[in-house]
Write a protein that binds this DNA or RNA. Structure first.
Lengths: 191, 191, 191, 191
DNA sequence: CATGAATGAGAATTCATTCAT
DNA sequence: GATGAATGAATTCTCATTCAT
């Protein structure tokens, strides 16, 4: 309970002000406990940071999977995932910050987060290759494709995040999804 | 002279330990001057940070353009740029760190850096559309394509950066270039 | 408790070396706490400075009122106050320094301090006018009289402060009180 | 020449921002010379500070004497001096600051300044006693009177200085002069 | 004499962490 | 377990002063 509230408090503070400004004092105050209490649940500040991305990353992945569930497997579903991710970023401004700052402030967690997503893709693509919906290629190339897909996703998210106008954001999401879909369709299916 | 050595010292320290650990003390010591001297050339630490990305970003862009110069304009040249960028990241380990941490520690400079690259792409693509080598599309979509290309580049760089083995890196570069070329060819040319 | 000891430590340091030399390090050491502890009780150095004059000013005013209490109201009591003030300055060497340096280092507190004393006088004089013991005059003139009385007090204090010999000081106090009494008697009573 | 311009530059800076903020950098810049040049004319910052009050104090005393010259000697002339001083403070806002901050930042000069004025008064009063225009009294009492007169002057100046409205200031000067004249007339002449 | 870059000794302030209660 | 006062190391930044040119 207390632990959970410290974790969510940490997320709120980082979402609002970034890791650098997320002092134990602020986090404890936000969680409604004394500073000392923090150390009953986390070894140190870094320990909390390192749990934050897994925590919110899981929620994000669930939201994305939830949204993509009813799309047919394959490219359609992947495009849905892409769209769901962008929507999630649009609706959870703090998430993006926690995510991208993690590369700096919680590098281990960030690498694990990336690796989690990459291995999800890896499984999907292997399955797609097995069923012939995806061209046969080396593991190295698959890895590269995955990273490039992730990059498209991440930078579309950055584009959204750097736009403050609501309607423009909606437009960007629509355009980005369209572009992503075209690229995937054109290049990642077996003719 | 002193200013230049502070700037390069800053880059070295950030490359090695990140912006957060780049104290004035370390930077000044690396530059071989007294701490106070720092403030004869920069208003404060942030002022130095804000000059670092433009400084190394320019060098990187020059190296990339240099390498792409003798490729024919269009997709070929873009693939060359991609490759040159990855090579640059491979050979300048510090560059990647300075670049990606800038989003957190020098957001203004980072935005300018991204905008510089985006507007370079914008010009190129407009020209390609004018000569019919690129499908006609809305400005918004062009913007999205650019961001997704940038993302591919950035995450390919991240993949390289997170790999420590030299040969593996070379392999990743080759694969990533191949993948990037295929995607571009398949999706971004007028059939 | 800790707060109080920081406050009195601040007074001691300023009394001995002036506000300019009263570093947090010295104050904290004098109070017997770590430097960081200071900031648990005061927002910054200025915040402490701004509490010092009210703190010692109150004690001074109490001492003065205490001494003047058994004198008959009116000029007699005012002369007693004057004498008590000079004695207080004589016996509390630090007080004078904290007071006069405050005009520079804690201007707001100094203005409030002056205003406190001025309004005390204002009340007294209004009462004296109402009972006919004081000539009728405009508010502006009353204000001027008050300031000039304050000035007499302050410069008599300065004269004492700049004299190091104990006996000379006692002589100055006696003479100053006599002079003050004569001036008041001659000019500020209704004949 | 350079020395003079450094001196006046120092006065301007202190008048505008106070001694504490009067850095050598600002003073040298105001004087239009390099920082190093400062040390060709003054041993250190304090040396400049210690010359400032004598410098502007002299000008003030000259202005005051100039204004009082055509008044008949004795109380009338003293009241004129008082008025001239207040006018000087009114018209030279910086002067008051240089003067009162000197007690803190240039104590020796301040003491000398006070002593200069005191000894002027001493001579005048001795002469007045010799000619019977002033009651006979001990040297100690004379000294006390002088300090109290100075205090009246100083605090009337403070009252003016703390008032920002031009007209109110003029009113205060008139009232203060009137009050001062009454007090002097009532208490300091031989009946 | 003038210059102005370089110096480095402080100063204020922050904050993660500890620990006695 | 909870508390929150105390800690003190670390950091940024200022500025009087020096000195080689």
């Amino acid at each position: 309970m207390t632990r959970e509230s410290l974790l969510t408090a940490g997320c709120h503070v980082v979402a609002a002000e970034g890791y650098a400004a997320a002092s134990i004092a602020k986090i404890a105050e936000t969680a409604g406990v004394a500073q000392g209490t923090f150390y009953n649940y986390f070894a140190d500040r870094q320990a909390l940071f390192d749990e934050m991305l897994p925590y919110i990353g899981l929620r994000m992945r669930e939201a994305v999977e939830q949204a993509a569930r009813d799309a047919p497997p394959g490219l359609r579903r992947e495009v849905r995932r892409f769209e769901a991710f962008l929507r999630y970023v649009d609706e959870n401004d703090g998430f993006y910050r926690i995510l991208y700052e993690a590369e700096v402030f919680s590098p281990t967690a960030h690498r694990v987060h990336i690796e989690n997503i990459v291995s999800g893709y890896r499984r999907t693509i292997r399955r797609a290759i097995a069923t012939g919906r995806f061209p046969l290629m080396s593991d190295g190339k698959i890895e590269c494709i995955i990273y490039q897909l992730l990059g498209m996703r991440a930078y579309a998210a950055m584009q959204i995040h750097s736009e403050t106008n609501r309607e423009q954001r909606a437009r960007i999401i629509a355009d980005a999804v369209d572009v992503y879909g075209r690229i995937l369709n054109a290049s990642l299916i077996v003719e």
